[in-house]
Structures are given as C-alpha cells and as structure tokens.
Amino acid sequence: MLVRMTTNADEPQTRPRRRAPAGAAVLREDVTEAIRAAVFEELAAVGYARMSIEGIARRAGVGKTAVYRRWRSKLHLVLDLVSALAVQGLPVPDTGSLEGDLRLLYEVTSRALRHPVASQVIPDLQAEAARNPEIAEAMQKALREGQDGVASKIVVQARQRGEVREGLDEDLALDLISGPLYWRSVVIRSPKLPKGYLAALARATAEALKAV
C-alpha cells in the first residue's frame, strides 16, 4: 500500500497567522462592555451575595477567564462599576432659573432611579455597603461625585444669578436638593410618584434654598 506523504506544497496557500498580542492588548472593549452589562443584570437578578463570576460570564457569553483577566474578584468588578458611575455623572441643567434647573435634575434623576435595574441594584449595594467598607466608600464616592456634583453646580449657577445668598452652606444645600427624591425613590421605594410631585419638589426646594 502506497502512502502519499503530504508536503506544504500540497496544502492551500494561506497567509501566515499573526501571533495575538499578549497582556492588555487582547482585552477587547466590546467584551469588557458585555461583562459590565452582565454584572448589572446579574446584580438585579440575584443580588451581590449570590452573584458569581460564573453567572456573570454565562450571562455575558464569555468564559470565566475573560472576566478574571479584567478583575480579580466580583468585589473588584463591582467596585470598578460603581466608581465608573461617578465619573459619568449627570448633565448639568442650565434653564436660567434655580427652580427650572431643579425640575430638570429631578426629572432625569427620577427616571434613572426608577429604571428596573437601578431600582434593584442600588438598594442591594447599599445593604452590602453596611457590611463592606470598600463598597461603602465606592458608593459614597459615586453618589457624591455624581448627584451632588451636579447639585453643587446648580447652586453655583443660582448664586451667580443672585437667587441664593453668597454664604449659603453648600452641604446643607446638597442635602436639601438630593435628599427628598432619594428618600422617596430608594429608601421607601415609592412605586409611583404622585402627579405634579417633581414640580412641587423643585418649587419647595428652590424656596428653601433661597430662605437659608
């Protein structure tokens, strides 16, 4: 029986394969974004305590290695996501009046807090923050740099227009602006805001800021 030996000449001519780069160069951004999205979905579905790298990888359609290449644990993954929320921030409204700015801020914030994923993820992370100092620090940073960063700029704009006094206590102003809606949406988790609530809240908060 004659066995024919194959040589390179017998094979289709193909271009030589380039070696894939190692390290950070192989971390595709679309895969990273898919994992981040999967984390939010997994948090909303099972909560932080039951969340696993396996579940995240399965939901993202990737292997566990792809997750561990980017984050060494689920804690670091969640901390990274929470910190990313802080730098994204909210748009700073500039309607020409303090009440108008507050009304727009409340409308945007209310929609964000009522989102099905956010409404489940935020309370769960807040509960976890009571047990985990690292999550607590990340949550505080995200909230302060996100919501309060915008609120602070609204106060600055109002001060420049002469709507509030120069010596206004900024911490008190931020509490007045951010507290009521957060309490209603996240703490007591009111399923639906009454008609006209945001307009009334903006009006009352503007009057309070002018009075203090």
Rank of each mutant, 00 (worst) to 15 (best):
L77P: 00
A206M: 01
S97T: 15
E163V: 06
P21G: 08
L98H: 03
E166G: 09
Y68T: 14
D10P: 07
A38L: 12
A22C: 08
G179A: 04
L113H: 02
K64G: 09
K210A: 15
R36D: 12
D10V: 05
A66I: 10
A84M: 13
R28I: 01
L143W: 06
P21A: 12
E207I: 03
R184Q: 09
A199W: 10
V26L: 14
M5C: 13
R19L: 12
A199L: 13
R189H: 10
A44T: 01
R161L: 09
D169A: 05
T109H: 03
Y182D: 10
L209A: 03
R203P: 01
V67E: 06
K192A: 15
D148S: 01
G63W: 09
G149C: 01
L98D: 02
E137L: 13
R203F: 02
P116N: 04
I188M: 13
A158S: 08
R131I: 02
L201D: 01
V121G: 03
L104M: 09
V117Q: 12
T14H: 14
E128C: 10
P93Y: 04
P93Q: 05
A86Y: 08
I135E: 06
V3L: 15
Q120W: 00
I53M: 12
P123A: 05
G55P: 06
L90F: 15
R144Y: 11
A129P: 05
A34N: 08
V156M: 13
P191K: 04
T7C: 08
E107M: 04
W183A: 11
A118E: 07
A136K: 04
L85E: 14
V46L: 07
D80H: 14
G55F: 09
L193T: 00
M5T: 14
V150S: 00
D175Q: 15
L174E: 07
K210M: 10
T95P: 00
L172F: 13
E145T: 11
E163W: 08
T95E: 04
L85Y: 14
Q120K: 13
R50C: 07
R58M: 08
K74N: 08
I188K: 12
G149M: 00
L90K: 02
A60T: 08
H115M: 06
A20Q: 14
R17W: 15
I188V: 15
R70F: 04
S73T: 12
V187A: 11
S152Y: 11
V121H: 03
Y48V: 10
D94N: 13
E33P: 00
Q126K: 09
N8F: 14
A37W: 11
P180A: 04
K195R: 15
I35P: 02
Q120N: 08
A45H: 07
M1G: 15
A158H: 05
D10Q: 05
